[in-house]
C-alpha cells in the first residue's frame, strides 16, 4: 500500500502560484529525493504536506488516511515527521531537553500530572531519557547532553535534529536540505545514518540541491519546476531526461 499519496496539490501566495498541481506517491521503505531549481515549490510542497501550511486544493493521504490540512502536531504524532531547511535546534534548551521534547504520549505534559508529579509521568520520563541517551549515543553527541544546543557546531545541530525527529518513532521522515552547509565528511556520515535508518524500514523524502549526494542515496527522484512535477524516476532515468536537463541541470 502506498504510504504517502499527494494528489493535485495547489498553493498560491497572492498571485504567485508556488505549488501548481503536484501529485506523487511514495511507497513504504522508499528513499525519494525531490529536486528542482530555486522557487520550484519544493519547500512549499513540504509545508503543505506536513501541515505547516494549509493547501488551497488537492489531497494528501498518509498511511491510508486523508490528512489534508491536518495540523502539524497531529501528523507528527501519526508518524510523519519533518525537519526544516535551516537547522532549528532549540538553542535555549539543553541537547537532552531538545531530544526529550518530542516524547509522544507523555503524561507529564499535562498540568495535573506535572503538579502532582505522578508516577506515570516519572515512569515515562525515565523511559524517554533512556531512549534519548541511546539516540544521542548513535549520533555521537551524548557528551553534549547537558550543554545548551546553541553551543553545538553546525554539523552537530543537524545530528541533533535527526535524533530529535527519531524520538517520535516516525514511519516517514521528510528532510528539507539535510546536507546544506554540511562538510563532506559529515555528509558521508549523515548519508550512512539515513541509509541505516532506511534499512530499518524508515521511509525518507529528501529535498536537496546537491544532486551528487542524492543520486547515490535515493531509489527515485521527483523533479519539480514552476510548482509542477516535471519528471519522476530512477536517478539514471531522470538525469538523462531531456526536459530535466533543460530545466534544471541544463545549459
Amino acid at each position: 500500500m502506498t504510504l504517502l499519496a499527494v494528489d493535485s496539490l495547489h498553493r498560491s501566495f497572492g498571485s504567485l502560484v508556488a505549488v501548481d498541481d503536484v501529485s506523487f506517491e511514495i511507497e513504504p521503505g522508499e528513499v525519494v529525493g525531490m529536486i528542482g531549481p530555486n522557487g520550484a515549490g519544493k519547500t512549499t510542497t513540504f509545508n503543505c504536506v506536513s501541515g505547516v501550511l494549509d493547501s488551497d486544493a488537492g489531497t494528501v493521504t498518509f498511511d491510508g488516511e486523508d490528512v489534508t490540512n491536518v495540523p502539524a502536531y497531529e501528523l507528527a504524532r501519526n508518524g510523519l515527521v519533518r525537519t526544516f531547511q535551516q537547522t532549528r535546534e532549540l538553542s535555549t534548551m539543553t541537547v537532552e531537553a531538545n531530544v526529550l521534547l518530542p516524547t509522544p504520549a507523555h503524561p507529564g505534559e499535562r498540568a495535573w500530572h506535572a503538579i502532582t508529579r505522578s508516577e506515570a509521568s516519572q515512569q515515562r520520563e525515565r523511559e524517554a531519557r533512556e531512549q534519548a541517551m541511546e539516540l544521542l549515543d548513535v549520533f555521537d553527541i551524548r557528551s553534549k547532553a547537558d550543554e545548551y544546543a546553541g553551543t553545538l557546531s553546525g554539523g552537530q545541530r543537524k545530528l541533533l535534529e535527526l535524533a530529535r525527529a527519531l524520538m517520535l518513532d516516525p514511519t516517514m521522515l521528510m528532510l528539507d536540505e539535510p546536507f546544506a552547509g554540511v562538510n563532506p565528511t559529515l555528509t558521508t556520515e549523515l548519508v550512512a545514518h539515513l541509509e541505516s535508518l532506511n534499512d530499518d524500514g524508515l521511509t525518507l523524502l529528501i529535498i536537496e540541491h546537491e544532486l551528487e549526494t542524492l543520486t547515490d542515496l535515493v531509489d527515485r527522484l521527483i523533479v519539480l519546476t514552476d510548482g509542477r512535477v516535471l519528471a519522476s524516476g530512477t536517478p539514471a532515468e531522470v538525469t538523462s531526461n531531456e526536459e530535466v536537463i533543460d530545466a534544471y541541470l541544463g545549459n
Binding site: S50, A72, Y73, A76, V81
Partner: peptide, 9 residues
C-alpha cells in the same frame, strides 16, 4: 513551529 512539528499542540 518546531514545537508544533514535534507533536505538541
Amino acid at each position: 513551529q518546531v514545537t508544533e512539528t514535534l507533536g505538541k499542540r
